[in-house]
Every structure is written in C-alpha cells, then in structure tokens.
Write a protein that binds this DNA or RNA. Structure first.
Length: 855
RNA sequence: GCCGGAGUGGCGGAACAGGCAGACGCGACGGUCUCAAACACCGUUCCUUGCAAGAGGGUGCGGGUUCGAUCCCCGCCUCCGGCACCA
C-alpha cells in the first residue's frame, strides 16, 4: 500500500536500511485513515457495544499549544484501545467558542469576535489533524453558531417554564467606564480596572439565575458514577450542606426606631443560643440602613463601602483580624430576653444563610476573635465531660462529641448538647420564632453576563406585559452581526437600537430586549448531547440518540473544572431530565482528571505570559508519534506539571529502535561486543521461551496500564520489551516464531499510543508475508497466554530486622516451610545468626518476603 | 484563609494491597564503530565509606504505630488547582 519497493532489503544485514521518517509516513496514514473513514462513528450501529469517550472541548484561544496535545492524545490512545476491544467508539470534538478573550481581542485590535474565533478554530482544526487523533469531525459542534446557541435559548425557556430560572438582584464588579468586569479584569490590591485604572466598585443589577440549589441534595449523591474521590469531596464541600435552624431575633425599640423588626439568623448550633451575646449582620443586609443610629451612620457607611470593595476570599480569610462596627441598635435574645448589640462585620456574607448570625463567641472561633477584639462577653454554654463549666476561656470550645453538656442555659442546662439544641428549636417553633433548616453553601447559578459575545437571553421587557419570553418560533435570537465597542468595555448590545427594539410578542407594542447574554458554562453544560445530532433542527437533542449513547462512558478533562463545569453539567442533565428531554440524570459515568501542563516557568500557559509552547516545531523535528508518546511518558497523566522537552530524544530513540527491530531484525550493532550471540549461559530453547514469556507478561501489564490511564508505566514496559528484543537482535532468535509473535504483540500494544509508525510497520509485515492489507487499528487486542506468563522459580528477599540481607531463589510452588528451610540454610544468613535461632520469622504475603527478627 | 492535590537521585518519574526504594527515560561518565565528529550501539551511574566482599545513611521537616512505613496516624513547611464574571 505504501512505499512497497523498499521492504525486501531488510533481510540483508549490511545493505542500506531505510530510516524511520515520520515526516513522510504520518501525513500518508492520516490521509488514508480519512479516506477510509476509519474513525467515523456509525451512531446507529448496534452490532457492537457503544463507548462514548469525551474529552473536554477546547476554547479556541488561537493556536494549539502543547497543553492541548497533552489533553487530547492520551484520550485518542484510549479511543483506539477501546476500538481494538470491539467497541463502537464515539470520540467527538468541538469548540467552546463564546467567551471573554474573543471580545478582549476585538476591543484591543478592532475586528469582530466572530472573525477572531472562526479564524482560530480553522487553525486549530488543522493542527488537531496533525496529531493523528481519531475525532468524529462530522459531529463537530461550535457553540457560537446559532444552530447551537439557539438551543441554549430554547433550553433556558424550558427552565423558565419549569421555575428553574428567575431574576434577582446581584452585585457585579463595576467600572464606571467599562461596565461589568470579570474577575481577571480587576487588578491589584486596590482593585482597579485593567483598562482605565478606575477603582472598581460593586453594583447591584437585576440578573438571571438558574436554581441549582433545587438539586443540591441530589447533587450530593454520587452513587452509580465512578468519579475520583477528591472530585467528589470537592463537590460535596462546595455544596456545603449544613443542618441547623433559623431563629428570629427581634430588634428592641430605641430612640431612633420603634423596634419589632426581625433579624432571622441561620445557625448550625441552636444548642448554643443562650451563649449568643451579640449579633452580626452582613454589610449588605437590607436592615442595616434602617437600624443604624444617626451617630453611627458615618462610621457604618464607611465600613460598608469598604467591605463591599473586598473580595469574598479576603472577607472569609480566618487569618485576617476581625473588623466590624456596632450599628447602635440592639436585639433581644429570644431565649434569655437579654439585650445584645448588633454589629456589621465583613466576615458575614449576604449570600450565605440569612446574611445574619447570632454570635456565640464561646463556641465559634470567628465569633471568639471578634468578641476579643471588641471586648464583648464570652459566655460558656457547652462543656465537655472533663471541662470546668466556668472560668475564663482562652479559645472557642467547639464541642465534637455527644457527651458535651449544656451549661448556663436556663432550663436546658444539664441536657446533652445535641438534644438541648433540638429542644430549644422545638420550644421556639411553638411560637413561630424558629424552625429547623438545611442550608447550603452552594448558591444559585448566576448566568447573566453583561457582554456581547455570548448567547442572548431570550426574553423581552414590555411596558404593558412585563417580562415576556421570546416565543419558540422566534428563536434563535441572533446576535447582531455588526458590533461597536466604541472604545469601551461596556456591552455593545446596550447601544444597538436595532437589537434592542422589538415588538412585544403578546401586545405587539414597542418593547425592549434583554441585553444580558449567558455564561459560557451554559454552552458546556450539554454539548455532549448535541454531538450526537449536531444538525438536528427539531430540538436540542435527538432523544433516540441520547438514549442510545449517553451517559458518556468516559469523560477526561482538567481538575480545574472539579466544581464549576462538572457541577453545572450534572445540574443541567438533571434539569433536562426533569423537563423530559433526556433519560439519564447523570452525564458522565466515569471521570478522569488529567493534570495541566504549565509553562516552563511553572505558570499556566497563556499568550500574555509568553510561555506558550508550540508543538508544531517538535512535530516537524520528531514526528507526531514521538510527541504523543513523550507526553504520555513524561509522568502520570493526572499530574501535569511544567513543560520541558528534556527527554523527548529518548522517546524518539525508542521508536527508532522499534523501527530497526522490524525492518532489520538480523542486523548487528558494532558497538556491542556480544552482538549476534546469545548470552553465554543461555540456550536457544530457553531464550525463545523467555522472550515469549516477557512478551505476554508485558501484554498483561500494558493492558491494565491502559485501562488505568497509566500511560507512563505502559510505555516504560514497552521500552523494557524493546530492550529485551534488542539483546536478541541478530541472534538465532530473530525470525523465530517467538520473535515474530513478540514483534506483532509489540506493534499492537503500541498502536493506540503511536498510531502512525505502528500502522506503517504493520503494513510492511503484512506485505512481506504476502497477506492483504488491514489497518492495525482494526485488529483485535491480543489475548494473554496464561501458560506463557508463569515462571518456574521466584526470588524472595530476606530481611534481618527489617534490613535486606540476602535473596533466595525457590521453585514457584515452594511452601512456606520450604522457604524457611532455604533461608536458614543460606550461608550469609547463618553468618548473621551466628548460631542463634531467630526470635521470630515473618513470612509476608504468603512467602513474598521473609523477615527474621532477632532481639 | 478555606477546600482538593503533590513533595522520592543532578532531572522527569517507578514502587497499584504496609513488604527488595530508585523501574523506564534524560543527563553525566567510560567504551565500540569512525580519519574525525555526529548518529547508533554496549556498559556504569542515590549518597558516604571501602581495593573488594561489605557497612552506614536515605522518599519535604518533627514525632508516633508496626517484625517492617515513600505508603497508616498526629503536628508543621513548601508548591500546584479551585474559591462562583478566565475557560
């Protein structure tokens, strides 16, 4: 099929041997695979079991960098590995095409986000093909295309109907010149705008939310999906379920207000209510302006202004000294009737619980610090069994156990803490002043973005009819093609009259479009469904296809998506299932988080840092197979790390050795004094059996390494096999059946990782054997011969007091008594024992290791 | 700061279930081939000590459990990811 004429030279040891030239074989096979449609997936073929392999689709940032290769090529190896196991593999790709960088580029350099994005996609498509990846290009999805984002709108409207979408006020980082800023657009400790330098403030805007909290409990349930434990833990912590109670505190009347306002708090520790000696409300709490005394107003306003400029990370830092301001008003502790002061402090967030807390300094670290800083009363109301019930406290006492008792708690003193807490809530609940409550750290998903380059949110505001959803038959709401940034970062849709003006679908009167667009996480929350029917015009998904192909069998992507994307995707799937659109409630059956390749400087690769590594140069020099293999060999796939091409030569040398073994098995290297002869102690028969055994043991290990994503050790084992083969090159073994079998296994095992060189060598072998061509990638994965794997003897390490002192070789079927006798008979061991008997003989793992203990 | 992860030779890493620390590769050193160099090939390479056989030390730091700890427990240090508008 390819370069036929040259192969027969291979058997002559000293004629010119054709060298491995990836530059010619790689494009050849890539073209041929495309021509044969070898990797297009027949989505309706049910003769074979399906396997949906999904890799997180890339953002079209410009060029493909080495990080993309790191993400994609091991996934492609998995796709090929599964195909060889008889699966009908679907391995699609697309582009996450909306987002901030396209707009930044447009603002900076002029031009249109669309042009910039599509140009990048074109480049990246071309580069992706040079990897030899087996993507199902026919199913490609580009999210910035109306045929995709129109269905974002359709789905949004279904969620709106289902009560899962709603509007509410929410704060954004705001620059007076450039409008809403993303987090990365706010710079410096003084938090100024990246473009104009103005100090950033918070502004409350009416924005759209999706009700992720409605699924909080279901999202905590990971049964039935095989995800890495750390990811499940991170999601669980992110959702942050807390059981407790909401309790009402009444504001006392004073000279400035009549009292009676209710401050509702959430607490996980209602048992400590008698110890609540003050209250803290978030600076954003709606009652702050009303309750603040005039003499406190200036200070409170200054504090609130300051707090609102801080980041949440900063505010929640337990490191920072506690700050706050008393507002002057006083609340009544509902159980003790005591008057307790109310503070604003930035460590209480408006977005968690009720935005107000009862502060129990004796039993909460943050409250303790605050009380110390402000000289407030710290009153112990819980004591452990071995603790004094009274006396000064030097730190908050956080009761862990059920054996903690309530003290100083009126009629509840002496009760176990957990029981007392329930009793206190039950008592207050009788008069409607408390109720048991579960709160989550998880917030509803803010999907509004004040930007042009995203999916327009399909609603209309009418002076008569209010909020009107865009009717389905008027979808998609298209982004206007011309866009004028007018030198500002503000959303151009706000100034686009043609876009803004619309007739109300209900009354026909003049109305105004929503100008917010959707968070791009919306796009990535269902794209794998769309891959299955990218051209479907009747709906976002083809139900028959999604029922057949989802959930995704294996998802691979970066761990940086542990909480946001991966949680949104789970939420979306559940919400779509509840809207009757898909069957399953979980999107990804199995997840693997690969690490990230950083720049050589250890920082994230980005154009602005100038640390982007371009793979094209490496591909030109070594070929795609070497680059693929090197990325897999560098280290464990889930680890990532700083990029360094050091060592790529070793991988290239390995492929060269594979090449040499196949095209020139009888050749001899002048550098090897032993070349051409078997090791002195070895017979041909033993060498042949040993080679076959090595091949099958390698096959056994390589198979499990692929299955467990351990590509680095998989390649190391193939290197060992190649080293073994090289020792026998040019000897009587070359050309024997065991040699041919080993070469064949080697190529098959290597094929998923290095698809081009293996295809080339495979086809040459077929041709030499006079057999018709078939692709190596359509071969069945070979089976381990269990008889070849067994070994006749085993070597057992012998320790004395835990230190390795000797090794003893015994027959594979030796009993522990045999091993003990062999060990005690060893000269070295007898010398160490010096006539004594060991105090103890430890046979670890049924005789895997022996440890003699001498006192 | 909080949540998650990681720290092993000069370097990337291996040891998957508490049982031989350093597989495999890079680099370095020595050699073969060559007029020479490159390529290729063969060998050595954790540290200290010893001619050697060997001995001692060693998996970020300090403790602990165990016959035995890179692995488990307690307390730290450093680095990476995430912290809700980067994707």
């Amino acid at each position: 099929m390819t370069k036929t004429a040259r192969t027969e030279q291979a058997s002559e040891p000293h004629t010119h041997i054709e060298r491995y030239d990836p530059g010619s074989i790689e494009p050849h096979w890539q073209a041929r695979w495309a021509e044969l449609g070898l990797h297009d997936t027949d989505l309706v073929d049910d003769a074979r079991p399906k396997y949906y392999l999904l890799t997180m689709y890339p953002y079209p940032s410009g060029d493909l960098h080495i990080g993309h290769w790191y993400i994609v090529t091991p996934s492609d190896a998995l796709a090929r590995f599964r195909r060889m196991h008889g699966y009908n593999v679907f391995f699609p790709i697309g582009f996450d095409a909306f987002g901030l960088p396209a707009e930044n580029a447009a603002i900076k350099n002029g031009g249109h986000p669309f042009t910039w994005t599509m140009h990048n996609i074109e480049t990246m498509r071309r580069q992706f093909r040079s990897m030899g990846a087996t993507f199902a290009w026919k199913n490609e999805v580009v999210t910035a295309d109306p045929s995709y984002y129109g269905w974002n709108q359709w789905l949004f409207l279904r969620f709106l109907e289902a009560g899962l979408a709603y509007r509410a006020l929410s704060a954004v980082d705001w620059c007076p010149n450039d409008g809403t800023l993303a987090r990365e657009q706010v710079e410096g400790t003084d938090r100024h705008c990246w473009r104009c330098g103005a100090l950033v403030e918070k502004r409350d805007l009416e924005q759209w939310f999706l009700r992720t909290t409605a699924y909080a409990d279901e999202l905590l349930d990971f049964s039935g999906i095989d995800w890495p434990e750390p990811i499940k833990i991170q999601q669980t912590n992110w959702i942050g379920r807390s059981e407790g109670a909401e309790i009402d505190f009444e504001v006392a009347p004073d000279d400035y207000q009549p009292g009676g306002d209710v401050l509702r708090v959430f607490t996980t520790r209602p048992d400590t209510l008698f110890g609540a000696t003050f209250m803290v409300v978030a600076p954003e709490h709606p009652l702050v302006p009303k309750l603040t005394h005039p003499d406190r107003l200036a200070e409170v306003e200054a504090y609130v202004g300051q707090a609102r400029r801080r980041t949440e990370i900063d505010r929640l830092s337990t490191d920072r000294e506690k700050t706050g301001v008393a507002i002057g008003a006083v609340a009544i502790n509902p159980v003790s009737g005591e008057r307790i002061p109310i503070f604003v402090a930035d460590y209480v967030l408006a977005t968690y619980g009720t935005g107000a807390i009862m502060a129990v300094p004796a039993h909460d670290e943050r409250d303790f610090e605050f009380a110390q800083a402000f000289g407030l009363e710290i009153r112990r109301v819980v004591a452990g069994p071995d603790e004094a019930s009274h006396g000064p406290m030097t730190a908050a006492y956080i009761a862990h156990a059920a054996d903690a008792m309530l003290v100083n708690s009126g009629p509840y003193s002496g009760m176990p803490a957990d029981e007392g807490g329930k009793a206190i809530v039950a008592w207050l609940a009788e008069t409607g002043r408390a109720e048991p409550k579960v709160t989550y750290r998880l917030r509803d998903w803010l999907v509004s973005r004040q930007r042009y380059w995203g999916t327009p949110i399909p609603v209309i505001y009418c002076p008569t009819d209010g909020l009107v959803p865009v009717p389905d038959d008027q979808l998609p709401v298209l982004l206007p093609e011309t866009v004028d940034y007018a030198g500002s970062g503000d959303n151009p849709l706000n100034h686009d009259e043609a876009f803004l003006r619309v007739d109300c679908p209900r009354c026909g009167g003049p109305a105004r479009r929503e100008t917010d667009t959707m968070d791009t996480f919306m796009d990535s929350s269902w794209y794998w469904f769309r891959y299955l029917s990218p051209d479907e015009a009747g709906g976002p998904v083809d139900r028959e296809m999604t029922d057949r192909w989802t959930p995704v069998d294996q998802y691979t992507g970066g761990a940086e998506h542990a909480v946001m994307h991966l949680l949104y995707a789970r939420f979306f799937t559940k919400a779509m299932a509840d809207c009757g659109l898909v069957r399953d409630r979980e999107p990804f059956r199995r997840l693997f988080n690969q690490g990230q390749i950083l720049g050589a400087d250890g920082e994230r690769m980005s154009k602005s840092r100038g640390n982007v590594q371009d793979p094209d140069e490496l591909v030109a020099r070594y070929g795609a197979d070497t680059v693929r293999l090197f990325l897999m060999f560098m280290g464990p796939w889930d680890q990532g790390g700083p990029w360094s091409p050091t060592g790529i030569g070793g991988v290239h040398r390995f492929l060269n050795r594979v090449w040499t073994l196949v095209v020139d098995p009888h050749g001899r290297e002048p550098g090897d004094p032993e070349a051409g002869s078997l090791p002195a102690a070895e017979t041909e028969a033993r060498a042949r059996a040993g080679l076959r055994s090595a091949a099958h043991r390698t096959l056994r290990d390589v198979t499990t390494d692929y299955e467990g994503f351990r590509f680095n050790t998989m390649i190391a084992k193939l290197m060992e096999l190649v080293n073994t083969l090289f020792r026998y090159r040019g000897t009587v073994l070359a050309g024997r059946p065991e040699w041919d079998e080993t070469i064949s296994l080697l190529l098959l095992m290597l094929a998923p990782a290095a698809p081009h060189i293996t295809e080339e060598l495979w086809s040459r072998r077929l041709e030499r054997a006079g057999r018709p061509w078939t692709s190596i990638h359509e071969q069945a994965w070979p089976e381990v011969d269990p008889n070849a794997v067994v070994e006749a003897t085993r070597e057992i390490p012998v320790q004395v007091n835990g230190k390795l002192r000797d090794k003893v070789t015994v027959p594979a079927d030796a009993t522990t008594a045999d091993i003990e006798a062999a060990v005690l008979g060893r000269e070295r061991i007898r010398a160490i024992l010096n006539g004594r008997a060991p105090d103890r003989i430890v046979m670890a793992g049924g005789g895997k290791l022996v440890n003699l203990v001498i006192r």
